[in-house]
Computed example of a mutant assay.
Amino acid sequence: MRNVNLLILLFVLALFSFEGMAKQFYRYKNSDGALIIKDQLTNEMIAVGYDILNDSGRVIKRVGPGKTLAEEEQERLSKIEQKKAEIQLQQKIRSDAELLRQFSSIGDIIRNRDAQLLALEQRIKIQESKSDLLKLQLEDQQKQAATHERLGQNLPKLLQNDILATRQQLVRNEQNSNLLEDEKIKVASRYEKDIVRYKELESLRKTLKKDAKENDGSQPVIYDCPDPRVCQRAWQLAQVYAKDNASGQIEIITNTLILTSKPEKDTEIALSFSRIPAPNNGNQIVLEVSCNNTEQGVNLCKSNQVKKVRTSYLSFLKERLN
């Protein structure tokens, strides 16, 4: 009896082992459209896709076509570009947040810019004063050298060293002055970018609040561009409108910002146009009118005169774009 039970156990284990070792087959269509079944995967199967069959011929799983090496490389590069774009977006968000935290208005940015430029200009003048003194010093040293030569005397070593040192100081001074001039250009460029970006952010904020009830005459006027070609034409017309209606001259013109000089008197107005993204990959052009930061200036911005400047803009565009 014991032997019989042992035989039954061995038989059951054999059945399980057989099922566990059940063979799988792979079926695919070759380039001629014929169904091919094999017991091993091939590169051709992976490329075109295949079915996994059990030993009874039943489909266990369907596997789609594999990616080519070129497709895998393209996918890898796309992921890298996507990651770069995400990092750049985060950097831009942090930069925008810092810009808004640091400045409360474009006027603040301009004042900071002018202060830095003035400091650099003063340093340049100091360098120029040093150079003038060094030139006088060199001239005196050269006169001493000429006297020694007329007397037929050898030029003293100390005087030779002094002349060489003065010339070297003049060269260093000139280099420092050039570096400071380059820094002035960089500072002006950096602050111009800050002004443009701040205005874009300010316009976006005002656009989002355009339905709010405002009584100070500062509501923006928004033109929704129907397509890129018309938007470019409208942007060119915005420059004309700014020249014709602002009190001062245009100070900044970029692809996204037109800004006239700020009002200095209570009777002056400034215009700014911002081209900002809109829903559905479109663009909007936002007109803002500003006045001097005084009681009279505030009243001017509430006046019919300024109201007409704002309300006439869309009709101005309509007449010229149709």
Rank of each mutant, 00 (worst) to 15 (best):
E295F: 08
F18I: 12
L159T: 06
E128K: 07
E295I: 11
K130E: 15
E44C: 05
L41Q: 02
A145P: 07
L118T: 11
Q24A: 14
V309S: 04
G297W: 03
E181F: 13
P228C: 05
K209P: 02
L10E: 10
P156N: 11
L6V: 10
N3L: 14
D51G: 03
L208V: 10
P220E: 04
V59N: 01
L133I: 12
I109F: 06
E214S: 11
S290D: 11
Y223M: 03
D266L: 12
I163G: 10
K67H: 09
S247I: 07
R320E: 04
G20N: 13
A70K: 15
E268P: 02
N43M: 13
D39P: 01
I163P: 08
G297Q: 10
L118S: 14
S189D: 15
S31W: 10
S131I: 12
K186C: 05
L13M: 14
F11R: 08
V48F: 00
L117V: 14
D211C: 06
R167Y: 05
I250P: 02
L151Y: 00
L136F: 14
E121I: 06
L317V: 02
I52C: 04
E73N: 15
Q160C: 02
L170Y: 03
G152D: 01
L259V: 03
D39S: 09
W235K: 04
Q137A: 15
Q305F: 04
I253W: 02
A97L: 09
S203N: 08
K186V: 12
K318N: 03
R233Q: 13
V4W: 11
N293A: 07
K318G: 00
N54H: 03
N161A: 15
L259E: 10
S31G: 13
V286G: 03
Q82G: 12
E44P: 03
E86G: 01
P279C: 14
E295Y: 06
L13V: 10
D266T: 06
P220C: 05
V63K: 01
I185L: 15
L287Y: 01
G282R: 11
Y28S: 05
E268Y: 00
V306L: 04
R233L: 15
Y191E: 11
I126P: 00
L314T: 01
L287Q: 06
L138V: 09
L159R: 07
A34R: 13
L120R: 12
T42Q: 10
I93G: 02
E181K: 14
K125I: 01
R113A: 03
L99P: 01
E72A: 13
Q239N: 07
E75P: 06
T256M: 05
Q169R: 13
E268G: 00
Q153E: 13
S247V: 05
L13Q: 11
